[in-house]
Amino acid sequence: MTSRATLIQIEGVSKWFGDFQVLRNVNLQVAERERIVICGPSGSGKSTLIRCINRLEEHQEGRIVFAGRELGPDATDLAQVRREIGMVFQEFNLFPHLTVLENCMLGPTRVLGMTAAEARDRALEFLNRVRIPEQAGKHPGQLSGGQQQRAAIARSLCMQPRVMLFDEPTSALDPVMIKEVLDVMNDLAESGMTMIVVTHEMGFARTVADRVAFMDEGSIVECLPPKQFFSNPSDERTKLFLSQILSH
């Protein structure tokens, strides 16, 4: 792991919502091509942490450095950083007034300045990769949840980001659809994409992750390779969480 360049560096990051501290002195380094799964009980700050990485949330203390650029209030740099960071949301958040194809083309044409033809080719390529090329002409409302989430993944991939953030991508789906989405995420991991995934899917963590981070009350309790994490966690809170989540 040390041979790879660091892509994201999170140092001593804290954040408050009013009086409530959501993040407490979080430290995390993500290397290129690394796959990290973040788990933990709800309200532990997992989503807030990854939302800080593309600055949908602003942290108040500490530093977040993406590819050598520190995220701060400097807005011009921000759009540049965001186009290099893909984000997949729990609720998909596709643009309902556009077709799936147009959803995928919007970023490449408007942000990357591609022609419509180039953007269309790229969009179709990624819709193929997420296995819904036949849905290209439909509107998001006509798709199943699993299809929508895969369309959302394709929309992010069309920007050819350097890292993909997933914020509980399967939590709004039923089991069959969860599998469709996890299959796509597996493919993506095999292709060498850097990924940070907030999820409760421990099977995915076990097979795909390089490291699993456990968060509780706003801090990363431990961050270990999956083998160690599942068989020999050191912290009591991790043990308790695992016993709860793995028992069913």
């Binding site: 759009a79 965001r82 186009r83 949301f89 958040n93 596709l94 643009f95 970023g107 942000v111 920007m159």
Partner: peptide, 13 residues
């Protein structure tokens, strides 16, 4: 607001 977040995430101004 999630539409705004999705738009910003793909780098729209």
């Amino acid at each position: 607001g999630t539409q705004t977040e999705a738009g910003l995430s793909i780098g729209l101004s």
